[in-house]
Every structure is written in C-alpha cells, then in structure tokens.
C-alpha cells in the first residue's frame, strides 16, 4: 500500500513535470519569439520615452535587446548617420526636426529614413520661488535677455517696475535639442544665444542653480519642471499678444503654449526597418504610444491617435524623408497639426 502510494505520488509528480515542460515549451513556441538588437540613441529629452518603451517591449519580447543611448539630438544623428554602416543606430531620438545639413549627409551616405512624430514637450521658463515680480515674461523680453551680446545683468533692465536684483541665467548646453529649439523660438535663429550663462547638459544641475539663486532665470523641458515643482517658480509666457500662458500638460496638448512647445520625433533607418525586431518594436511603440508617453514616470504629452496612425502608415508604406520640410502623401495633415508649434 505504502509502495503503491509512493508510486502514485511519483507518477503525479512526473505528470506535473511533463505538463509544466509542455506548458513552458508551448509558451516559448506558441507565439513567435524574436531576437536581435534594436539600437537607439539621441536626445536626452526623448530618452525617457524610448527607455520606457524599451522596458515594456522587452517584457513581452525578452530575447530582443533594445539599447538606448543619450548623446543629445545632434549627437544621436551623428551616430544615426555614421560613415560605417555597422556603427549606425537603427532609430534616432530627436527633440527637433532633422536639419538640412543632416538630410544632406544622409543623402550622401545613401541612408533613407522615415520620420514619425511621437509626442509634444513644452520648454518651461523658471525663476527662484521667492521671485514675486516676474509672473510672466513676454517673448520680446526673453529675446532681449537671451540674445547674443545682451547687456542685461539686472532684473531692473528687463521691465519698468522690476526691482534692482542681479540676474543669474541658467540653460542647457549647446549640444541639446532644447537649446536649439529655445534659441530658434526666442532669438529667431538656431544657436543664437548669449554665452555668459551657466550651461549644463544635466537638468538637475540647472534645477539646483535656479533654486539656489535669488535672481535666477532659466529654462529646460517641462517634464523636468514637473518633477521639481516645489523648488521652482514657473513663469507664464506672453507671445507678444498681451495674454500670458502658464504651461500645463493640458495647455501644451491644446497647442496654445507658444512658442515654447515642440514636437518630438523618432527617425527610423529604412533598411533597419526591414528587420523583424525593429518592426516589432516600432509596432509595439505606436500601438501603446499614449500609455508610454503619458506614463507617470515619463510624463509627456501624447499626440492624437490620428497622428500615431499617420506614423504607422508612413512606416508601412516606407515614406522616406522629413515630413516637416518635404511634401508627401499625408504630410499636409502632419504639417497642419505641427504648424501650430
């Protein structure tokens, strides 16, 4: 009897083991498991989005390796458009539209790329929390402050009625897409900025600087402001029309925070997109875009479903080139949507 019991126990155990093995192999072969590597690099502003996407995607496809580097938008394009094909990244994170020079370089190297918009970011302008006078600034005032060779060193020079407080400026470094976008939107020309300010590629350094200096003024991405709201005072922006706008996620989504909202893009190497793991990653990204972009740990503004399906369409039909500069099938729609920014 005892023996019988033992054998039956052993039997049950082996049946369970076999069942487990079948189940496991079943799950391994049941759905197609991909492998390979997807290489991304570029903007530090966009990186939180692609890192989150990579993490979620690898939860589903654990054998695909998605790597994300942070070299700034310009640095990312350098790796995207490397002379050596094996050193190129598959996808470039960009917080601005690809530049003419970069398009030329792609042409010269025979690289075709597909541009897909993925979200919107606002640039926040901030002062020290004890600053009671600068509740809003006009674009003209910002331009006078930040223009190359500007002689403004005191808040009293900005507007009549501002007190005599020395001004201390903080902003991102020259490799940053935020810097490119801010200078273009405020000073009218990309990279046109005074240089006597504290520049750092690390937004945390800027937070500490602005929060630690009574006369401070600085700018960086809105999502970083959100994470540090208690230490900084947000300044409303008056686009020279008398109605200052204080940015929030909803305001940025609505497109009225002008001129400091900007679209973010992924640039996909068309040849790389023929690889199944790259395809799967981008499909996953676009199918879950809203959840990824507006994830509480990412906190950007997602686009409309329509714009994501335009991105999907561009990928599937292989529409190469930059929609923001060239004309094409549904580029008109894209331009219409993004012309606000």
């Amino acid at each position: 009897m005892q023996d019988l019991l033992r054998t039956s126990k052993r039997l049950t155990a082996s049946v369970v083991a076999i069942a487990a093995v079948t189940f496991m192999t079943g799950s391994a072969f049941g759905q197609t498991k991909l492998s390979g590597t997807v290489k991304l690099d570029g903007s530090s502003t966009v990186a939180p989005i692609t890192m989150a996407a990579a993490e979620m995607f690898m939860g589903e496809q654990p054998r695909v390796r998605v790597t994300v580097g942070i070299s700034g938008t310009g640095g990312g394009f350098k790796k995207f458009l490397d002379e050596k094909a094996d050193l190129r990244t598959d996808i470039s994170d960009a917080s601005r539209v690809i530049k003419g020079k970069e398009i030329e370089r792609a042409k010269k190297l025979g690289i075709e790329f597909i541009e897909i918009p993925i979200g919107i970011d606002g640039i926040a302008v901030m002062v020290h929390p004890s600053n009671a006078f600068a509740n809003f600034l006009t674009v003209d005032e910002l331009k006078r402050i930040w223009s190359p060779g500007s002689s403004i060193t005191n808040w009293s020079q900005v507007r009549k009625g501002f007190p005599d407080v020395p001004m201390k400026l903080y902003g991102p470094g020259t490799d940053s897409g935020t810097f490119d976008y801010f200078t273009k939107a405020i000073c009218g020309k990309e990279k046109a900025s005074r240089s006597d300010y504290t520049a750092s590629e690390s937004d945390n350094v800027l937070v500490r600087g602005i929060a630690g200096n009574k006369g401070s003024l600085g700018y960086f991405g809105y999502s970083y402001y959100q994470a540090n709201q208690d230490k900084l005072k947000l300044v409303a922006i008056d686009n020279n029309n008398g109605t200052p706008v204080t940015p929030s996620l909803d305001i940025i989504r609505g497109g009225t925070y002008k001129p400091l909202s900007r679209p973010m893009f992924l640039y996909v190497n068309k040849t790389a997109y023929t690889r199944p793991e790259v395809k799967a990653f981008l499909k996953y990204f676009l199918d879950n875009a809203k959840a990824i972009v507006e994830h509480p740990r990412v906190n950007y503004v997602a686009l409309s479903d329509e714009l994501y399906s335009i991105g999907r369409h561009r990928l599937n039909t292989g529409q190469v080139g930059s929609a923001m500069s060239a004309a094409g099938d549904n580029t008109a729609k894209l331009q219409e949507v993004f012309s606000k920014f």
Binding site: T37, A54, R65, V66, G69, Y224, A227, N228, R297
Partner: peptide
C-alpha cells in the same frame, strides 16, 4: 550605452559600466 538590460555575452558585445549607470541615475529628475 546608457540604458541596457542585458549582460555582455562576449568581448564584442555592447555594454554599460557602473560609473555610467550612476551618472545616468543622477541625471534623472525623481
């Protein structure tokens, strides 16, 4: 690289290192 979730399997694999991981975390807002 900055964000990587696998271990190098050979000398020709891509990688990240402790100082870079630390630097990357210090740069995060939270």
């Amino acid at each position: 690289l900055t964000f990587i979730t696998f271990v190098p399997e050979g000398p020709l694999d891509t990688f990240t290192a402790m100082p870079i991981q630390i630097y990357n975390w210090i740069d995060e807002p939270d």
